[in-house]
Amino acid sequence: MTGPKSDADVNTTDGARNRRVTGIGRVLIAVYGLLALAATGRSFVQIAESFADAPLSYSLSALAAVIYIVATVALVRSGRGWYRVAWVTIGFELLGVLVIGTLSLVEPDLFQHKTVWSVFGRGYGFVPLVLPLLGMWWLARRAPGRA
């Protein structure tokens, strides 16, 4: 595997094809994919092993997992429709982490079992709190039709 090591020229050609999957945005999408995998794995284990213990928390975990998967797909796909889906899912994530994060502190009885969003995503190094903000910043910069 030889060839030029710098990729300054690669991004421009990729950018023409899909303006949301360029540069550092790839890392953001990869982190979204990772969080989607983590949320799906956790919710699979929770529901398979002990759904009856905490139906509310575990249903929320499953919902969060689906949202992260849809957001990941929406970030990868191009076009206005997917751009809107990306905004909606990422907005929902921010809302989810803020509401559930606050509720888990104010009313701990409601969420005795962990979800991705408990205590603002502390169990995941606060990534669930930071990621929607990064995602929104990225989407705002990459609006379709913007020069």
């Binding site: 990729d7 690669v10 991004n11 990729d14 790839r26 890392v27 990869a30 990772l34």
Partner: peptide, 18 residues
């Protein structure tokens, strides 16, 4: 797989992240 499809520096970062 990503690194094979998109041969850019960010794919290397993603390898590290994984």
């Amino acid at each position: 797989t990503w690194a094979l499809i998109e041969r850019s520096r960010w794919s290397t970062v993603i390898l590290g992240g994984a």
